[in-house]
């Protein structure tokens, strides 16, 4: 398949050229997805931990729903957020449609369930070991949640990376709510979709390789941090 070699060369050329437009697209991708992971973590981590530790009405259905929502179809989320943010929709007056903020919102909806559901599992496992000790020391529910989140931080890093990977790779939702506007809401994935539809398959594939390389680099970094930290903290 000569296209693949061609695309690899093109990818290397693109990276080497330091093309400012490409750089802007990469930066926007990271900005949007990191912002989304940040907000989704603020919601998803405490929610997951509360589901693991607490005893309250609706816990079971909420857990099942979260698990199911890990596989939300991005296009549906995109449409939903679009209708919400559209000028004719309930949040229309904010004027957020076709802005990076809209893309962040859509990605938050997509990855919060992932972060909540996976962290619930991790915290529940830790809680199994910690419950008596924490209760013995007099930790209340909120204190227990904070302690468990901190003590499972190495595993939770992996959860956040899963969220980031999904956010960075996602195209359906950001295409709809961002509009793929050149220089404003055009990110890696929507650029790839655009180049594909222009029939410039080598360029599309080259951009795909750069995206994969980016995700790989982020994961390598996080993996190394996790390794070192875990070796030191047990």
């Amino acid at each position: 398949m000569p296209e693949i070699t061609q695309a690899l060369i093109a990818a290397a050329d693109l990276v080497a050229s330091g093309d400012s437009k490409l750089l802007a697209i990469i930066v926007l991708s990271l900005r949007v997805s990191l912002g989304a992971v940040f907000i989704a973590a603020l919601i998803g981590l405490p929610l997951g931990a509360a589901l693991a530790v607490g005893r309250f009405a609706g816990q079971l259905p909420l857990t099942v729903v979260l698990n199911a929502f890990m596989g939300l179809p991005p296009v549906v989320v995109g449409l939903f957020v679009y209708l919400l943010l559209s000028r004719a929709g309930p949040l229309g007056p904010l004027g957020l449609l076709f802005t990076p903020a809209a893309m962040v919102i859509a990605q938050v909806v997509l990855i919060t369930p992932i972060i909540a559901a996976l962290s619930r599992q991790i915290v529940a496992d830790a809680w199994h070991d910690y419950a008596e000790q924490l209760k013995s020391l007099g930790a209340g529910l909120t204190q227990s949640i904070r302690t468990l989140l901190w003590d499972t931080r190495f595993s939770l890093v992996t959860v956040l990376l899963a969220g980031l990977g999904r956010a960075l790779a996602e195209v359906g939702a950001v295409m709809i709510v961002g509009g793929n506007i050149d220089g404003v809401t055009r990110v890696m994935t929507t650029t790839i979709a655009l180049e594909t539809s222009k029939g410039d398959l080598p360029l599309a594939l080259a951009l795909g390789f750069i995206l994969i390389g980016l995700v790989l680099a982020l994961n390598t970094g996080a993996f190394l941090i996790r390794q070192t930290a875990q070796r030191r903290h047990g």
């Binding site: 910690y130 008596e132 000790q133």
Partner: peptide, 8 residues
């Protein structure tokens, strides 16, 4: 406890 839990 029989198996004390240490925090990380």
């Amino acid at each position: 406890f029989q198996r004390p839990v240490m925090l990380r």
